[in-house]
């Protein structure tokens, strides 16, 4: 029973990892940008959630409705103001700049919020659970998973059935030719980053409700996100969800064997998978 329980917890945890990963996957897909600051942006969203809940005295899930547009605005400005200037044939400048950004965000958070661990208080929601037979499933992890599935489904739908999604795919295919269609790629990239950080905002708030956070934890979230994206296969959003689930299950099963093995089990599973399937399970992007 413990094992089945661990398996279910792992699947639900995978939802959170998919939320970490979806934004990364989106911006890599549209503009081939690897955002080293992604984990710190997740933590920034958690802190914004903290400020909003304290200032307005509202539930963190409600605060999400304020944090999402804030992060989206930050994303657009960041892309148009800085990141667009780093994009080109060379992959190094965006890596260096987002690395610098990561350091800056951490230091600003440290300055404003201090290094003390914080948590978003979701009240009774945190301990609520539903029983299925002998199993007890937490409402919060279930909700996180549901939100992750809904977000991935919406992103997928947006990508393949809307005019914005068509523009994203066109710019991703061929930037020059997309410009000929009247698409300003700088604006399209701005919109992609806005959307990615909107998803990141949800990820940050769900993270903050689930666990303690402090300014230094972004790096590990970045790694989890990367691992989920790569296990699932670049450029495939449903694959990213599967990648998140595989990572989550590996971690909870690892912890079931030995509580100290949670993270190690996740990384080892990731390494095994890329050893045998270097392009992940469902790659969509070539090169």
């Amino acid at each position: 029973m413990d094992w089945i329980n661990a398996l279910i917890q792992g699947i639900l945890l995978g939802g959170l990892y998919a939320l970490f990963a979806a934004g990364l996957s989106l911006i890599f897909g549209v503009m081939r940008l690897v955002n080293i600051a992604h984990g710190d942006l997740i933590v920034l969203a958690a802190y914004l959630g903290l400020s909003v809940t304290i200032m307005l005295g509202i539930h963190p899930l409600l605060a999400m409705f304020a944090v999402v547009p804030m992060m989206a605005a930050i994303g657009y400005v960041l892309q148009r103001g800085i990141l667009n200037k780093t994009l080109g044939d060379d992959l190094l400048p965006p890596l260096l700049v987002t690395f610098g950004l990561s350091v800056i965000i951490q230091n600003v958070l440290l300055e404003v919020y201090s290094a003390d661990p914080q948590k978003l208080d979701a009240g009774t929601l945190e301990i609520a659970s539903i029983s299925v037979g002998d199993l007890s499933i937490g409402v919060l992890p279930l909700l996180t998973f549901g939100i992750a599935v809904a977000i991935i489904a919406s992103l997928h739908w947006m990508f393949y059935h809307t005019s914005l999604g068509r523009s994203f795919r066109a710019v991703s295919d061929n930037q020059d030719i997309a410009q000929l269609m009247g698409l300003n790629r700088r604006h399209i990239f701005g919109l992609a980053m806005a959307l990615a950080l909107a998803v990141t905002a949800v990820a940050g708030v769900m993270l903050g409700v689930r666990t303690n956070f402090d300014p230094s934890i972004g790096g590990a979230r970045l790694i989890f996100g990367f691992e989920a994206v790569i296990i699932g296969g670049l450029g495939n959003l449903w694959g990213t969800l599967v990648g998140g689930i595989i990572l989550g299950v590996a971690q909870t099963l690892g912890a079931q064997i030995n509580p100290g093995w949670q993270l190690l089990a996740g990384h080892i599973t990731f390494l095994c998978i890329i050893a045998f399937k270097p392009r992940g399970f469902f790659p969509r992007v070539s090169g």
Binding site: R169, A170, S172, D173, I177
Partner: peptide, 11 residues
């Protein structure tokens, strides 16, 4: 109409 057609393969 660009040389080599250059359609969008994802579309």
């Amino acid at each position: 109409v660009p040389e080599g057609r250059q359609l969008f393969p994802s579309l």
